[in-house]
Design a protein around this nucleic acid. Structure first.
Length: 223
DNA sequence: TGCCAGGCCCTCTTTAGGGCCTT
C-alpha cells in the first residue's frame, strides 16, 4: 500500500510569524513509492521587507517579490496541490508555523490530513552518528543527489524528499523483522520521531501490530 | 532600516540550562 506524502519547504523573511516574519517562497514535493512524483514552487508576495542578510542567504530579493503572485493565491494553489497528503518538513516546527499562519491569512480551511512529521527529529534517532542534522550536512553525509542552490524552496524540498526516501529505506532495512509486511507510512514516521531513541524497535513493532489488525478489519460498507 | 523565536532533545536533569535546527 503506497501513500503520497508532501514534503514542503518555506523561504521566509525571518524566523517566525510572531515577529513579523512572512513567507517569501514555498515548494511542495510529492513522494510516493520511494520516488518524487510531483512538484510545486512559487515565490509569494506579502509586502514584507526582506533584510539584506536573508536576501544574501536565499537569493530572494525585494525586487523579485514585487512581481510575485499574491500569497493568498499561492497558498490556495499549494493547499490544493497537497490536499489529502500528510506533510513532511526539515525542522517541521518552523514550516508548520508559517504554513498555519499563511493558511489563516489566506482564509483557507485547514486540511485535517496536513499533519506534520519532522526529518530532523527522525534523523537524530536514525542517524545518531551523523556529524550534524542540518539538511546540507545530512545530504552530503548520505551522498544524496545535488538539487541545486541551497536555501531555495524547491531545492531544499527536493533534498528533504531524497532524505525521506533514504530514511524509509533505512527503516525497512534496520527494522525489517519488527516491521514485517507493514509499510512505512506517515503514521510510523510520526511515531518514530517522538519515540525514545532506546525504544525504536518496540515502537516499530507496535506500529506493525496495529497496522496488521487494521488490515484484517473488513472495509466499511459504502453508503 | 532591519531587529527578532520556539520547540525539541540531552544531561553534569526533572525546582534547569544549553545546544540544535529552521530563515
Amino acid at each position: 500500500m503506497s501513500e503520497t506524502l508532501a514534503v514542503i519547504d518555506f523561504e521566509t523573511s525571518g524566523l517566525g510569524p510572531a515577529n513579523g516574519g512572512r513567507a517569501t517562497e514555498i515548494a511542495a514535493v510529492l513522494v510516493r513509492g520511494g520516488a518524487i512524483v510531483g512538484e510545486y514552487q512559487s515565490l509569494m508576495h506579502t509586502g514584507v521587507y526582506v533584510p539584506p542578510f536573508i536576501e544574501q542567504l536565499t537569493g530572494i530579493s525585494n525586487e523579485m517579490l514585487e512581481g510575485a503572485p499574491p500569497a493568498e493565491q499561492v497558498m490556495r494553489e499549494v493547499a490544493e496541490f497537497t490536499r489529502g497528503c500528510p506533510m513532511i518538513a526539515h525542522n517541521a516546527g518552523f514550516d508548520r508555523g508559517f504554513w498555519q499562519f499563511e493558511m489563516r491569512k489566506a482564509e483557507i480551511e485547514p486540511d485535517p490530513a496536513h499533519e506534520f512529521a519532522c526529518t530532523v527529529l527522525l534523523a537524530r534517532r536514525l542517524y545518531p552518528e551523523a556529524p550534524s542534522c542540518k539538511l546540507g550536512q545530512l545530504a552530503r553525509w548520505h551522498e544524496l543527489p545535488d538539487m541545486g542552490r541551497a536555501h531555495r524552496a524547491l531545492a531544499d524540498a527536493k533534498t528533504t524528499a531524497h532524505l525521506l526516501i533514504r530514511m524509509e529505506r533505512d527503516i525497512e532495512q534496520q527494522f525489517g523483522q519488527e516491521l514485517g509486511v507493514a509499510p512505512v507510512r506517515h503514521e510510523l514516521l510520526a511515531r518514530l520521531q517522538k519515540a525514545n531513541k532506546t525504544a525504536l524497535k518496540r515502537c516499530v513493532a507496535d506500529y506493525a501490530a496495529v497496522w496488521r489488525r487494521r488490515a484484517q478489519q473488513p472495509l466499511p460498507l459504502q453508503a
